[in-house]
């Protein structure tokens, strides 16, 4: 019995030590330079997870009451951290560069296309950072190049909806979002690149090309869509037709993607196809029709060349 009491006692000491250290860490956050703050926050989160792991491991010999009070302490720590994060979150300012270029200057289809529409539309762009999310909705005929500020790691969800005839292009090599929802897009190019380090949920696409890396892909109600995809799990489609997949290399996507071992871009499961034969709803994009990595590189560098026309003008009605 004595031994057991000792163990409990020393666990208490250990826990208290970690708790105190963690509290100090959280309280120090405002003093941490903004550029490394996300890392500091991550470290706090990791410590909290670790602490809860320690309690979990000790659950075999801790009395239920103790376990609960440890859990409560951990929860308090999480809340304290969340509170601190809220108070530290910078007021994000966001702007789109509305690229107005002379159509005769050989800039290419996408821009030409853009300008014909934007003359009739108000120039105001409703891309609002809502809390820490980036929301782009109800856009038509524009080239949208969101340019999140340097300390953009605080951005968390990307919400794209109701977009027609647009090019949405994120800067290369950086990750901004932990998840993304995309809904109601037509005749557009979504060049998300490596910006979304998390699951991607897509609904309602028509005549769209998507270039994206993600952890999970769920695509619903998509028609005539080409995906250049890096996905670390099996992508699924549901209620789709005419979807074609091509691989996206991890080069240039940014740090988050460097360690990726396996791209499962072509191991697609179709919820609307249970037979063992290949689903008629999707195919591998023939190599001869793929846009080369070099060309994507050009697009990535904002070189909206003639090539873009091919994506945006997928339906010939433009």
């Amino acid at each position: 019995m004595d031994f057991e009491d000792d163990t409990k006692q020393s666990f208490y000491g250990h826990f208290l030590e970690m708790q105190t250290a963690l509290e100090a860490q959280i309280e120090n956050l405002p003093g941490v330079d903004a550029s490394v703050r996300p890392e500091a926050i991550d470290a706090c989160l990791a410590s909290i997870a670790q602490l809860s792991g320690v309690v979990k491991d000790a659950s075999s010999y801790l009395p239920a009451y103790d376990q609960r009070s440890y859990s409560e302490t951990i929860r308090d720590l999480s809340e304290k951290l969340a509170e601190m994060r809220r108070s530290l979150a910078p007021k994000q300012k966001f702007s789109f560069k509305n690229r107005k270029k002379d159509t005769s200057a050989g800039i290419g289809g996408a821009v030409k296309f853009s300008s014909t529409h934007s003359t009739e539309k108000p120039a105001a762009v409703s891309a609002v950072p809502e809390a820490n999310n980036l929301v782009i909705s109800q856009q038509s005929g524009k080239n949208l190049c969101p340019d999140p500020p340097a300390a953009a790691s605080s951005f968390s969800s990307l919400l794209l909806s109701d977009i027609e005839g647009c090019v949405v292009l994120f800067p290369a090599g950086r990750t901004f979002f932990k998840s993304a929802s995309v809904k109601g897009i037509s005749r557009s190019l979504l060049f998300l690149g490596g910006a979304v380090n998390g699951p991607l949920h897509v609904t309602g696409l028509r005549d769209v090309t998507v270039v994206v890396a993600c952890r999970q892909l769920r695509m619903h109600e998509a028609v005539n869509v080409d995906l250049y995809l890096l996905c670390t799990s099996r992508p699924i489609i549901e209620d789709c037709s005419g979807v074609r997949f091509a691989p996206l290399g991890k080069e240039g996507l940014g740090e988050a993607w460097e360690g990726v071992q396996r791209n499962m871009w072509d191991q697609v499961d179709d919820f609307k196809w249970l037979k063992s034969e290949h689903s008629p709803n999707w195919a591998v994009l023939p190599e001869s029709e793929r846009v080369s990595a070099e060309r994507w590189e050009k697009v990535r560098e904002m070189g909206l060349d003639e090539g873009l026309k091919a994506f945006v003008n997928k339906s010939t009605t433009l």
Partner: peptide, 8 residues
Amino acid sequence: VNTVSPTL
């Protein structure tokens, strides 16, 4: 938790 595929 990093390699979870959508559940079939």
